[in-house]
Write a protein that binds this DNA or RNA. Sequence first.
DNA 1: TGACGAAGTTTCGTGTGCGGAATATCCGCG
DNA 2: CGCGGATATTCCGCACACGAAACTTCGTCA
Lengths: 166, 166
Amino acid sequence: MRSATERTEAEERDATPREGADVDRILETLVYLYTESRRVTKEVARQHGLTGPQVTAIKVLENFGALSLTDLSARMSATNSTMTGIADRMERDGLVERIRSETDRRVVQIALTEKGRALAAQIPVASMALFADALRSLDEGDRRDLTRILRRLTDKVTELVGTNGD
Amino acid sequence: MRSATERTEAEERDATPREGADVDRILETLVYLYTESRRVTKEVARQHGLTGPQVTAIKVLENFGALSLTDLSARMSATNSTMTGIADRMERDGLVERIRSETDRRVVQIALTEKGRALAAQIPVASMALFADALRSLDEGDRRDLTRILRRLTDKVTELVGTNGD
DNA sequence: TGACGAAGTTTCGTGTGCGGAATATCCGCG
DNA sequence: CGCGGATATTCCGCACACGAAACTTCGTCA
């Protein structure tokens, strides 16, 4: 597979390439980084008998305590129907339990079991460990720049989509 | 191989709140941007009766001509087994056809049909349109910074994973 | 020639991931 | 109280997405 930062001959020749050439390159690089990170995360998770999203879930629950299914979905950038399946399998494996809220019986609290808590304590990183390592290797200035740029991107995306969360 | 996660001890000694706080924030933002973009891309694709990966596939095939399944997989950052399923559904819908290579009968060339080519011509963007729009809204300096930072991240990731050069 | 390892693709099992429909519950309003 | 809209979760069908195993074909080497 091509390194994501390589240049094609057409771009080298052209002084001012197409408008979106750098945009395409940035996208390609981000997709590469993201998918590669997910792949490695999955690999690490498997060493604990878990999947990627399951690791994310138990670390979120470890940090925030029991959450409703909707809140947990929001934290993981997943839909409720996706989260239902993840919770099902984690419940099947004895990692979490569903607790009906007594104040609002529509709500299901997802809580770690003892087994789940013990497992969470063994896993040092939340998710995307590879990406996180790479980010840590950046110097302070780069991280500040990246944070600034991502904030602008988020604002733009929020504006385009109209919805938001958190 | 020595892992880069050994710097957690340095973090604990550090007086500042927590070294990884901004890293976590950056990761969270990237995940948000990526998943949101994928969601919107899927939505756009559906208006043409396609899925997200299918749009990516026909635009890649439009640009590069018929590709072997392995080459197409690499272009899309997917595994061969994933690509097989995507090709199956696209073949079922008459968008592509499989052509056995005559020089190497192990190889299957994936080629656009007339219908597929016509559809590809109607779709202006390759993928991740939302993300691309947001990137275009950045000024020149930000894009240059982002490109530089992403190159460093890619180099670091490649170093951590091990070079799987093309 | 025949063994044999490598390469390309498919198959299989499992786990996301999404939108839409169905269900249950809550709440405000009359 | 009862109605109707809003909210929380689940169920359904489909499309990725991955690793491991199976299968075919290729190239080589003895």
